[in-house]
């Protein structure tokens, strides 16, 4: 479904050049739930953001269902419709109500008629337990509620794949499980998911594949069982030890 070929990304910072991605090549299949983990600064967020062209790689190519992902091509908006994205800081639109937040894009892009969008929106809000908040602005919601709305906003587009960029990092510990619960439900529905996360419990329960990144390279690409149980790699065991 997604094919990444020889991805490199450099940032200029002051006078130095930072090499963030150093040759990433990987394929993602339909229905996979891929957890990307690794120490901070390993390039995992940058890699994720390249997949829907929020970052432009220095070199290398990404294909989504045989179509090249390129931020300057006219096709990019159409590709992005099919790639949902959930951000660490939610990025809800503060000037819109919750209802407007989740229905604006699908009605604007004519994916649903306004009445269809309304029906779906209310059903999804009910599912995440936020139906009574449909007419308030995001500033009235807690972090956990905001992230659930952000996930619903993504789901409303009926995407083929969803990207999660550290979706629980900015949340208070007690609400993390609400968001994780919702993500597990989405995983059960068969959605293809690629997530950058530090939530190992979630990785154990829902991921079908684990990619470990360090210094802009893929160090390991394996199943969760293998990853947690038979780690011979020094860097991985060091990372896991720190988490525990």
């Amino acid at each position: 479904m997604i094919s990444v070929k020889n991805l490199y990304k450099e940032f200029k910072q002051d006078d130095k050049i930072l090499y963030v991605l150093n040759g990433i090549s990987v394929d993602f299949k339909k229905g996979e739930k891929v957890a990307i983990i690794g120490p901070s600064g390993s390039g995992k967020s940058t890699f994720l953001r390249c997949i829907n062209a929020l970052e432009t790689p220095t070199s290398g190519e990404i294909f989504f269902k045989e179509r090249k992902v390129d931020s300057s091509s006219s096709e990019i908006d159409d590709i992005r419709k099919n790639i949902g994205m959930v951000f660490q800081h939610f990025n809800l639109f503060p000037h819109m109500t919750i209802f407007e937040n989740i229905t604006f894009a699908p009605t604007m892009l004519k994916i649903y008629s306004p009445s269809q969008a309304k029906e779906l929106a209310m059903a999804l809000l009910e599912k995440v337990g936020l139906k009574d908040k449909w007419n308030v602005h995001p500033s009235r919601l807690s972090g956990g509620q905001k992230q659930r709305v952000a996930i619903v906003r993504s789901l409303m587009m009926n995407p083929e794949v969803m990207l999660f960029d550290e979706p629980t990092s900015a949340l208070d510990p007690e609400v993390v499980k609400d968001v994780i619960g919702l993500m597990i439900e989405i995983a059960k529905s068969g959605m293809t998911m690629i997530m950058v996360t530090h939530e190992m419990s979630f990785v154990r329960r829902a991921a079908t594949r684990v990619i470990f990144m360090d210094e802009g390279k893929i160090i390991a690409d394996t199943t969760p069982e293998n990853f947690f149980n038979n780690c011979e790699n020094v860097r991985i065991s060091k990372f896991l030890n720190k988490l525990i």
């Binding site: 929020l54 908006d77 994205m85 990025n91 809800l92 639109f93």
Partner: peptide, 23 residues
């Protein structure tokens, strides 16, 4: 306006113009 707002708009498949105008 936080750059995340623009990214959120674009990641939903909205064009640059629509994102600018409405978000």
């Amino acid at each position: 306006v936080d750059s995340g707002q623009y990214e959120a708009g674009r990641s939903l498949g909205l064009s640059a113009g629509t994102t600018m105008k409405h978000i």
